[in-house]
Write a protein that binds this DNA or RNA. Structure first.
Lengths: 144, 144
DNA sequence: AATTTTATTAAGAATTTTTCTTATTAAGAA
DNA sequence: TTCTTAATAAGAAAAATTCTTAATAAAATT
């Protein structure tokens, strides 16, 4: 049970080692806290929870670490990594490819909306379905 | 061609009337600008473009109007309406139901990832797929 | 084990995005 | 035309995130 956590931490340590990243208390504790949480916490929630264990922890470290982890693919960011609110007046069924480098958003038009499990509608009153495919666009890939 | 815009503006005006909302120049021009744009603009991009047509336009009005339109379902917001970055260490295939009222995020686990059209992978280097179902959760619905 | 190198951190300032406050304006009703 | 009040402009304020700099500590080297 709790071994799953240890296993995951071990994995994380290996990834850090492989990437020549240092294994710090902050990194380990932030990961542990997030892994054990089921509430999809934000930086401040983690900060509050970890403050007792790491008294001089700074919020900036949490932001930085979460960014690093998300970049590594060790954790998932639930929010769209868009720094600003973006809008679209096109209401026909389509999704978005978001380039995380240049911020360009491209439409992916489809014949009809993806089929989703019925369970979704049991969660509450569904207002909209937002499918974002994040990555690096062709243009940015060529620049590299 | 350009008639599609006029048609859409007519629709918008009707919706405003039905909802006892005033039909202001600002609202019409913001909608027109967004509808004609294919770049999924943010508030500032719209502000810059509209400034010449409406010299004393304020950025606040744009934010307010876009919010109103999104609420009405007249436009779509591409970013997640999460005000803060939120994270998840669970990497098994699942999606998120986000309550736009209380901010709770609930997991929707699925057997496997949704099938997406191949076209997606032609857009660039896909890093992750983020499916957010937004709405009002059961708990909030009962409170009302 | 001690020393060195340098990545990471803490602290707080700064920046960025968005929202709020208040007086003014103008849409639509009377 | 006048009246009512929703919507706006302007700028202040708030909220979230990132940056700057000096200090710390991880891990490589001696």
């Amino acid at each position: 049970m709790g071994n799953q956590l240890e296993e995951k931490v071990k994995e994380l340590k290996k990834i850090c080692k492989d990437k020549n990243m240092r294994i710090t208390d902050q990194r380990i504790e932030i990961f542990k806290e997030l892994f054990q949480s089921k509430e999809h916490p934000d930086a401040e929630m983690l900060f509050y929870k970890l403050k007792s264990r790491i008294p001089n922890l700074s919020l900036d470290t949490i932001y930085r670490t979460l960014d690093t982890f998300a970049e590594l693919g060790v954790i998932f960011r639930v929010d769209s990594q868009l720094q600003r609110a973006r809008f679209d007046a096109d209401l026909t069924p389509h999704y978005h490819f978001i380039c995380t480098k240049c911020g360009t958003i491209a439409d992916i038009h489809v014949d009809e909306n993806i089929m989703l499990p019925e369970d979704i509608y049991k969660m509450g009153d569904v207002k909209n379905i937002n499918l974002q495919i994040c990555g690096i666009c062709k243009h940015c890939l060529e620049e590299k």
